Simulated assay, not measured.
Amino acid sequence: MADDHSLPASLLAAFDGKPPPAPAWFNAAIAVEPERSTIEVQGAAIELLTWGEVGKPGLLFLHGNGAHADWWSFIAPSFAKDWRVAAISWAGMGASGWREAYSADTFAAEAFAAVEAAELKAGGHKPIFVGHSFGGFPTLFCAARHPERLRGAILVDTSIQPPEKRWKGPPPRSGFGTKVYPTLEEALTRFRLAPPQPCENLYIADYIARRSLKAVEGGWTWKFDPAIWQRFSMPDLGLLLAEIACPAALMWGERSGLMHAETLDYMIAQMPKDVLRLPIPDADHHVMLDQPLAFVAGLRGLLAAWG
């Protein structure tokens, strides 16, 4: 989601800065405003959104790379009746502060600090983490290294490639993500999904795009830290798959370009045999954007499986 000319044509340019028409279910969902707060975690201010009553079972949503907590604001209200729901913006993303270095340990600290601040354990149950894409990496780390603190962990289109196809690091990008656009309307035309994919629900793209930008001197720019991948460290994720030691599930979009058969076969072979699996039909990588209602229904089914 930045000024990258290798990405496909604008999703939102045709709307001239106006929100696309949205269905009633979406308008009703975003009308359920979260409580917004900030928590301090190891020197960084972390954006926290919460819905639902304290004392209900806890559910923590964790977004993907370059995204923010509001990627869940049209999903979380569907669970707020029965759950105490929270979402954070990782350090370096959304309205959260930036760090000199990012690691699995700092991301895990942010997630567990949100558990405490949102009182996700107040009902006597451990929380369940739901991590999309990159958000599944810290979720996996917590499921492997801190399983005693979780009731369950759900990875949503989190791609971990076989060792021979493992990602070797980000390509150099001069000034990536730092461009300032003179108007919000122009900035919105530069919003892209990464990795590139089709998008039919442009009302969702518009909603998350507006919350991906911040006003700065001279106009608007993206909220995320453009250097995050140059200052990031994580253990071998393939090894962590085998170390999952709490109830877990893998959900993915059946059309996802990141979850090819070879990748799925590798991940499933590494994971414990009792990990639940749920493909979402007619969905690409951004499952909750592509098929939001099917995503909600599928997630409800997984949660019900754990009582």
Results as ranks from 00 to 15, higher is better:
D3S: 01
L11F: 05
A14C: 15
P19G: 06
A22K: 05
N27Y: 04
A28F: 06
A29D: 13
T38I: 05
E40M: 15
A45I: 05
G58C: 00
L59Q: 00
L60W: 04
G64N: 03
A69N: 13
I75K: 01
I75Y: 01
A76M: 09
S78Q: 13
A80T: 07
R84I: 02
S89C: 10
E100L: 10
E100K: 14
A104H: 11
A111R: 03
F112P: 15
A117H: 08
A117R: 03
A118F: 02
L120K: 05
G123H: 06
G136I: 09
G136C: 10
F137V: 02
C142K: 05
C142I: 07
C142T: 07
P147T: 14
D157S: 05
P163S: 11
E164I: 10
R166N: 02
W167H: 14
P170R: 15
P171Y: 11
G175S: 06
F176Y: 02
K179M: 13
Y181E: 02
L184H: 10
P195V: 12
C199S: 15
A205N: 00
I208T: 11
V216G: 10
T221M: 10
P226A: 10
P226Q: 10
C246G: 14
P247Y: 08
A248P: 01
A248W: 01
A249L: 04
G257R: 05
L258H: 04
M259Q: 08
H260N: 12
A261K: 03
T263F: 00
L264K: 07
D265P: 13
D265N: 07
M267C: 13
I268C: 12
A269N: 14
M271I: 00
L276S: 00
P281C: 02
D282W: 09
L302D: 07
